[in-house]
Amino acid sequence: MATGGRRGAAAAPLLVAVAALLLGAAGHLYPGEVCPGMDIRNNLTRLHELENCSVIEGHLQILLMFKTRPEDFRDLSFPKLIMITDYLLLFRVYGLESLKDLFPNLTVIRGSRLFFNYALVIFEMVHLKELGLYNLMNITRGSVRIEKNNELCYLATIDWSRILDSVEDNYIVLNKDDNEECGDICPGTAKGKTNCPATVINGQFVERCWTHSHCQKVCPTICKSHGCTAEGLCCHSECLGNCSQPDDPTKCVACRNFYLDGRCVETCPPPYYHFQDWRCVNFSFCQDLHHKCKNSRRQGCHQYVIHNNKCIPECPSGYTMNSSNLLCTPCLGPCPKVCHLLEGEKTIDSVTSAQELRGCTVINGSLIINIRGGNNLAAELEANLGLIEEISGYLKIRRSYALVSLSFFRKLRLIRGETLEIGNYSFYALDNQNLRQLWDWSKHNLTITQGKLFFHYNPKLCLSEIHKMEEVSGTKGRQERNDIALKTNGDQASCENELLKFSYIRTSFDKI
């Protein structure tokens, strides 16, 4: 039985969820670079991206490699990797027998973001014989899940209580170790020597080791999670996991709180800001991140802002960003909400898709409305799209047979046209069989910064309504002859009103 693990408890099935942008060198404390989270699957090609990484700022997932063999891993080693800020997950990587050479110096898994409450997941690794993470000293947050690894031993010899604050939620089941077939031998045991430290858990006094050649490092209890030197002297209180010299914040392997210019500090002093819960960055760093993602459509890219001495992905609820200094300031009234469309555009074809934009005031991208039916549609669209004030790209209304009016965009005031449909149009209306009105132009103002209007096959939309939009939106004169079809717009509506004058002759039985 794995020490510190839980057996036999019912657990939810383990679901495996399925960018080499360097964020800056980590400095003297770390020998390499800070790398983003990685999802490495199918083959070993991307694994080489770990070569210079000291910190993975995010998670590391290595999974679904069915053609790899043990010899493929023999020359692979990433000794610079010290810390993973989120979680480490391995799933069905064939041929991998140990992690001792792959990650010989991995010391800390912070667990800032977890995989279903777990910071370390080893699942269905069919050839893994031992973990071998002999320098792993601290899992700051989260638990361990090690399950269905039929060859995995050296679990009962690990004292997880020396690595985690609590072992109650560890789930370590259905491994070879369960069948008591392992016969784990710690260093020196074969020669009758006791080389590794022994600890007591559940009444068992057991030597602690990761492999037959690597003991588990056990520091004096007084050192807590700070770690200790090879001689057993406690590291500085700002260290986490390990250090090369005692009581020196510049000799830590990793930091308990924050890293700044080669030393570990309790908090980031001005003019620095907390970033990702582990390091200090200056304003320029946060500003660069903001600008890199301002026009990016890459998933996970955030326009970072500053709030409460932190550089964070977005302002919290009730705050909006001051564009001059990136500071989050309290909103006066309802907060603006910028919604970034991942692929640059979004099609609204149902109430469900409209709900995804609920509360958005600025759309960074283009909207395509293609709704053919739905219950209580006008009210639903207004509830979900009615706060949109600005669209950076274009607005396209296409084959939306259920629409009679666009009044559900009740606050839309600006279409920038930074991206144009077919390279020309910022407003595009095609084949809307029941569209009769755009907006009530006596109450609604709309500016279209650039781009043209396109109207074709809107049989109940009168040309007068379209011409009014040209005047109000500032697009009059931009359109070419064929942009607004004269014969297919309003051709099934009563669009022309003329005053009919009647004269009559009164007659009676005795007068003409």
Rank of each mutant, 00 (worst) to 15 (best):
P269N: 10
N105T: 04
G203F: 11
E97A: 07
N322L: 13
E51H: 04
I158W: 04
Y273D: 01
D165A: 11
T250K: 07
R256I: 08
E57I: 12
S161Y: 14
P187N: 06
N242Y: 06
C215M: 15
R141V: 10
N43K: 05
N42S: 11
Q276V: 04
P246F: 13
E207K: 15
D86Y: 01
E49H: 03
C264A: 00
R92S: 12
W160S: 01
V218C: 09
G95F: 05
C239R: 01
F283W: 09
V265T: 09
S98M: 02
R110Q: 07
S244W: 14
G203S: 06
M137K: 10
W210P: 02
L96K: 01
H274N: 08
I109R: 00
A190I: 06
T140L: 09
K217Q: 07
N175D: 06
E180S: 07
N150C: 04
E207N: 15
R208K: 09
W278I: 15
N149E: 00
F258D: 03
Y134M: 11
N257G: 05
N138V: 02
E231K: 01
D178T: 06
V173G: 04
P104W: 00
F258T: 04
C243V: 00
P187L: 08
Y87V: 00
I185L: 04
T45Q: 02
T199P: 09
Y87L: 01
E151M: 04
L233G: 08
L89T: 13
S296E: 13
P316V: 06
R69Q: 10
N282R: 12
R46A: 15
L155S: 05
R41G: 15
V305L: 08
N52L: 04
C268E: 00
Y171P: 02
L96F: 04
R69I: 11
P197R: 13
M83D: 04
C280K: 03
G333E: 15
V265Q: 06
A156Q: 11
H214L: 06
G188C: 11
F205A: 04
S284L: 06
H28D: 05
C209E: 02
T250L: 11
C239N: 00
H302C: 05
A156N: 15
K67W: 15
L88R: 01
L240Q: 06
K148Q: 11
I109C: 00
I139Y: 01
F103Q: 00
I146T: 01
D86C: 00
C243P: 00
L106A: 00
H290T: 06
E180M: 10
F258G: 03
M38V: 05
L102W: 14
F66Q: 04
P269G: 06
P197I: 14
P249M: 02
E168Y: 11
V55N: 01
L60K: 00
T199W: 09
E124S: 05
D247K: 12
C243G: 00
T250M: 07
P313V: 03
N195W: 10
T199K: 09
D159T: 10
S323C: 07
R113F: 08
S244Y: 11
R297M: 08
N105H: 05
C223Q: 01
E181N: 14
R46T: 03
E49R: 15
C335R: 03
L99N: 00
L96C: 13
Y259A: 03
Q287T: 09
A190P: 10
S98Q: 02
P269W: 08
A119K: 00
D177R: 07
C182R: 04
L102K: 00
L89N: 01
D159G: 12
K191N: 15
E168A: 15
G300T: 10
S225I: 13
A198K: 06
C35S: 00
L327D: 15
V108G: 02
N150H: 04
C255H: 00
P220T: 10
Q204L: 07
N309G: 12
M65S: 14
G227I: 04
R279Q: 05
L289F: 07
R145A: 08
N295Y: 09
R69V: 12
F91L: 04
P246C: 04
V265G: 03
I84M: 01
G37F: 06
I172P: 02
N52M: 00
T45S: 14
R297T: 10
C264E: 00
L88F: 08
P79Y: 04
P269R: 01
Y94T: 10
N322W: 10
I62D: 00
C268L: 01
A119T: 09
V305P: 04
L44T: 11
A156D: 01
Q276L: 06
Y154M: 09
N135T: 12
L50T: 02
S54D: 03
N202V: 04
G192P: 05
P36L: 08
H48N: 12
N257A: 10
S98V: 02
Y304M: 08
K129R: 06
C268G: 00
L89V: 00
F78A: 08
H212P: 10
R145S: 08
E124I: 00
E238H: 14
S323K: 05
C239S: 00
Y304E: 04
F73A: 06
D165I: 06
C186R: 02
I312S: 05
P104Y: 00
C286A: 06
E130G: 04
L136F: 08
R208Q: 03
P79C: 03
E147R: 01
S112V: 07
E124W: 03
K80I: 06
Q276I: 03
H48S: 09
N202I: 02
G188E: 05
R110H: 10
V173M: 12
N242A: 09
P70A: 10
D101E: 14
K294A: 15
C328Y: 03
C335A: 05
T140C: 08
A119H: 00
D101T: 10
C331S: 03
N135D: 09
M125D: 07
S237D: 13
S317G: 06
F275V: 14
E130W: 12
W160A: 01
K67Y: 04
I56R: 15
F116M: 08
F91I: 10
Y304R: 05
N150I: 13
C301S: 12
M321R: 06
N175H: 14
F283A: 01
E147M: 02
K129L: 06
R46E: 09
R298C: 13
D247I: 15
G142H: 01
T199V: 07
P104M: 01
V281D: 00
C315V: 06
I62P: 00
M83C: 08
K310D: 08
L76Q: 04
C219L: 02
C328A: 02
M125C: 07
P330N: 07
I82S: 07
D159I: 13
C331V: 08
H290L: 09
C293Q: 01
N149W: 00
E33F: 01
R74G: 02
N105F: 05
Q303A: 08
G183C: 10
D247R: 13
S323A: 08
V55L: 05
C293K: 04
W160D: 01
N202S: 13
D177H: 10
C196N: 04
T189L: 08
E238D: 13
C182M: 04
T157D: 06
L233S: 13
F285V: 06
N42F: 15
V121T: 07
E33L: 06
D86T: 01
P36A: 09
N325T: 04
T107F: 05
I62Q: 00
E168M: 08
C153N: 01
Y259R: 12
N309L: 06
R74Q: 04
A190M: 05
Q287R: 07
N308Q: 12
V108K: 02
L133K: 01
D261V: 03
M83P: 00
I222L: 04
L60M: 07
M125T: 07
R297L: 09
C286W: 03
A119F: 00
P270C: 08
